[in-house]
Design a protein around this nucleic acid. Structure first.
Length: 568
RNA sequence: GCGGUCGUAGCUCAAUUGGAUAGAGCAACAGGCUACGAACUUGUAGGUUGGGGGUUCGAGUCCCUCCGACCGCACCA
């Protein structure tokens, strides 16, 4: 039931041979400019075999003949051309224009052997030399991380892992949005909390950040400075309070991220970009390239030249740069360090996508910046939508979620759905039905294998790890599992190429399901030493693929599962 | 108004980027523990892929057009 297109690894001699045979037969039957390229795909329906080729369908138009007829002729021709193909192909049939192929068990046995011998290298790509900047998660330093950011963190971190696994050099970045007015607002909010310690009636700013999380920070300031700022003018305390608050909150965000198993290569303060002169340099570079002009006393960027619907201001009349200026500058730097840059943004940054595109184009690197929009998330508890507004005190933080459902469940859940589909996160469901969470099913499969391995004699495990007696694998459930494991490299590559870690989450579920089928059908530890060795080898290969898949998703692969109390 | 994302089983989501009879998990119904972990498993039922047109051997997927949901469109960030 697989659907993953299988790329032909160079070592897949058999498949390469088969593809060549198809191609030659097709070229002989329908003379044309070039022999058609033959790709194999895995049919949705397992009854159609292991691989299918649509070469006859593609040829039908040019040949002006029914595809089914062509398919039939190709099938009979390849075995006439090369009778030795019978060793590779156990069955080849033409159906509805497709050519369905079932491979001999030996092919799948070799897959298991390869996984065991390659170990951690299985599915891993050689270094591509490509360097990519990946920015995700970046939040305003004005409060703790909330649920939605959990989704972005899960997506970004898993994508980074997958890309690195595929040989790409990835630099993950978190931008601290500390250059805008919200940091001043933070400073004033913090000041109000500071005053309220001595005077509970002290008014809180209307546009302030009202959560309780500022209170302990205010207390720190009170402890350090006493009443010194109680009657001081704003000019004396604003900078101190804003900076202190920012530092504390960023540290807290970072702590939460790390608790969520996400670490960054770079924490970039936007304020620092201004102070270091990077912003000025970026704007200057843009001027040199001729993409700026002055009007009404402001400096504009001619973004309309690159498809924007109106030009954008870089430097205001009063000489202060807009938010856009550091973005221009920072992405200029990113593109100097990397071949391309990728960002994962929330849906509220939609209007931003084209502007990032114009930045890439302006610096003569069109297409080098791409954006993935993670759609909105609705969080539900007890059938009611949980307010996610920071304007209210009752925010649901990422820490809350971790406390409630755990890192493993949260990370797996956040990544199960495609980023571009809005997702509903039912908190009470996650809480009450923890046992039904797919992540436990996958982890359970891994723990089961670990349990079998622990029970097996050491000698048997050693033989299995060496891939001995694999020719004893031939039962349908065994072949199906081996076949599933063979898809892993293509799945990881797809995740890295299409930024869709959801595929990996679903793949892990499939592996767990196929393993369970195998487990039900074939007892591993039997009286037959060779048979046990072969089946244990398959189990070890599955364990390895499960562990790798989970680790790429930032989820643990436990050797044992703690038994939870049963619900009733 | 302009632009973007989306609409698939009762619910949450898939569908190898144009392939075959649209699939999983929950929930529902009917079965299965004297074997390596039943946190499991076998089966049944569930659909006009929001509506309509088009492109072709073939459309959930691409084009047009309606309907609906969400989100963007500042010398705010």
């Amino acid at each position: 039931m697989s659907r993953t297109t299988t790329d032909l690894a160079p070592e897949d001699r058999e498949l390469t041979r088969l593809a060549a045979a198809f191609s030659k037969a097709a070229a002989d039957l329908v003379p044309g400019d070039a022999p058609p390229a033959v790709a194999f795909e895995s049919p949705r329906n397992a009854a159609f075999g292991d691989f299918a080729s649509n070469v006859a369908l593609q040829l039908a138009k040019r040949a002006r003949r029914p595809p089914q007829q062509l398919a039939t002729e190709i099938v009979s021709k390849i075995f006439v051309d090369d009778p030795s193909l019978h060793d590779v192909v156990s069955e080849a049939t033409a159906l509805g224009g497709f050519i369905n192929v079932r491979l001999a068990p030996a092919y799948w046995q070799r897959v298991v052997a390869r996984i065991l011998s390659e170990g951690d290298a299985y599915g891993r790509g050689a270094p591509t030399g490509e360097r990519v900047s990946l920015e995700f998660g970046s939040a305003n330093p004005t409060g703790p991380l909330v649920v939605v950011q959990g989704r972005t963190l899960s997506l970004g971190d898993s994508i980074a892992h997958a890309m690195r696994f595929c040989g790409v050099t990835v630099e993950t970045e978190w931008i601290i949005n500390d250059a805008g007015s919200q940091v001043d607002t933070l400073g004033r909010s913090l000041y109000a909390r500071y005053r309220q310690i001595a005077d509970p009636a002290f008014p809180f700013p209307d546009d302030g950040y009202p959560g309780d999380y500022l209170i302990p920070i205010a207390r720190e300031l009170r402890d350090a400075h006493g009443a010194r700022f109680d009657d001081a003018p704003e000019s004396e305390w604003l900078r101190l309070f804003a900076t202190f608050g920012r530092d504390r909150l960023v540290a807290g965000q970072r702590e939460t991220a790390e608790r969520f198993r996400v670490t960054y290569d770079r924490w970039q303060s936007e304020k620092e970009l201004h102070e270091s002169g990077a912003v000025a340099r970026g704007v200057e570079r843009l001027r040199e390239l001729g993409h700026t002009y002055e009007s009404d006393g402001a400096v504009w960027m001619r973004t309309t030249a690159f498809g924007d619907d109106k030009d954008r201001v870089l430097v205001r009349q009063d000489g202060r740069p807009t938010y856009y200026a550091p973005d221009v500058a920072y992405h200029y730097e990113k593109l100097q360090r990397n071949d391309r840059a990728m960002l994962i943004l929330g849906p509220d940054h939609h209007g931003y996508v084209t502007r990032l595109g114009t930045i890439a184009a302006a610096f003569e690197r069109p297409g080098a910046i791409s954006v993935l929009i993670a759609q909105l998330m609705t969080t539900i508890r007890d059938g009611e939508v949980v307010s996610l507004s920071k304007r209210h005190g009752d925010v649901l933080t990422l820490d809350d979620v971790i406390d409630e459902v755990g890192v493993d469940a949260a990370r797996f859940f956040f990544v199960m759905m495609n980023a571009d589909s809005p997702m509903t996160f039912d908190l009470s469901l996650a809480k009450e039905q923890t046992n039904d969470n797919p992540v436990f099913y996958v982890q359970y499969g891994h723990a089961r294998i670990a349990s079998i391995v622990a029970r097996a004699p050491a000698e048997l495990v050693a033989r299995a790890a060496r891939g001995e007696a694999l020719d004893r694998l031939d039962a349908p459930a065994e072949i199906a599992l081996a076949r599933r494991l063979s898809e892993f490299p293509a799945v990881v590559r797809a995740v890295a190429d299409t930024y869709a870690p959801s595929r990996l989450a679903r793949y892990a579920q499939s592996v767990a399901a196929d393993f369970t089928q195998f487990y039900m059908a074939s007892r591993v530890l039997t009286d037959d030493a060779d048979l046990s060795t072969a089946r244990l080898a398959l189990a070890l290969a599955a364990k390895h693929v499960l562990a790798t898949s989970l680790s790429l998703l930032g989820v643990t692969a436990p050797e044992k599962m703690e038994r939870l109390e049963a619900d009733d």
